[in-house]
Design a protein around this nucleic acid. Structure first.
Lengths: 117, 117, 117, 117
DNA sequence: TTTT
DNA sequence: TTTT
């Protein structure tokens, strides 16, 4: 199945409020970013943290949960798949972007423990 | 641990031979692409396949296994983490790229079943 | 979502032909075992392999794919969830068993590369 | 690699304080249970929850983090591998148990967010 | 035996 | 742009 071929799991925090749109036909899309922090110790033994930002896209029920219960700083666990998109920029150069399409969301903040999609 | 925060799993085929470099100090790096195919059925019930290409980077022991045993068309299972890099292109525009840094490789072609890293 | 709370991924070989039953109502169930091999090097540097056997249960479409395309020795990738069952044995002692309920199957043998569920 | 062949991921709560032992040689082992809750809606549309209990074993650094920072009710994300053990019970019958050997732990309670192993 |  |  597809989840065995292409699967991403992240646990991190939303960088900002999601950008939510209602499409013609009523489907909801939510775009947002998640930061994951990698903890490691450098050569001198000092604890270091390195942040990676991930661009996320959620559709339908997942988007609605994100819209209602998640915002800037919310901690989430997410399972999704990698996708690529491209477009032509103002210089006529092709630009590529990698996004994660959300399959499942789990809100990890205490007040939202019962919410998932 | 970091593998719980940022983890990608792919099962797919290499698009071409890996580009392998030996760094000063002897460390090996291998760059390559993997295609994953998503199978789905369209509105008319016809079976469709959609390919996503993933840019991969392997270091050290993983790079050496890739160099020795994998080539164009090799089927692989991979676990890694998402990372982003940027650079300035010829127009002075910042370009972004998402890559997967390989943590584990498993060669799925019969002749290589015993090889992994 | 539930796949974020309880998820198992295995890549291994079937130990025997699956035991397949058709339930009243037409639903198919398949019971089978998968062996995973852990490769490691012992204190003397000798390559060792340790096998773990996993009890699997597949339902519906997944069971039908297993029944049609998989048999003794077939290599599979599987995603599923852990479950426990208990029953009373002939001594009246409660027995416990852990099984993996299959969510997704991917057949890794060349002749079956196009089959999944 | 072995993490690709046999991997479990759980997000759940510890049922009780861990049982921690120091082995001769100084290695630490921690045994504990984690409950995962599956949420679903029954035929009548009522929200139902089903609990699965998982037996966990952590060694070394992972065991020490569990001992210091986790207790009854602590929410954890865990990555590990499935293993089986057997012993002979008082009736001379062989008993089998499936356990998850912890590779990575992430504490999800707010006060412990910086702790992982 | 957990949690919401 | 997050969090500890």
């Amino acid at each position: 199945m597809n989840a065995l071929r292409n699967s991403v799991r992240l646990i991190g925090h939303m960088g900002d409020a999601p950008k939510v749109k209602k499409l013609d036909g009523g489907k909801t899309v939510a775009n947002f970013s998640i930061a994951t922090n990698e903890i490691y110790h450098d050569a001198s033994g000092t604890r270091q943290s390195e942040t990676t930002w991930h661009k996320m896209v959620a559709w339908g029920k997942q988007a609605e949960v994100i819209e209602k219960y998640a915002g800037k700083g919310t901690e989430l666990a997410i399972e999704g798949k990698l996708t690529n998109r491209s477009w032509d920029d103002k210089n006529g150069e092709k630009q590529y972007i990698t996004e994660i399409v959300v399959n499942s969301v789990l809100l990890l903040d205490k007040k939202n423990q019962a919410v998932e999609a």
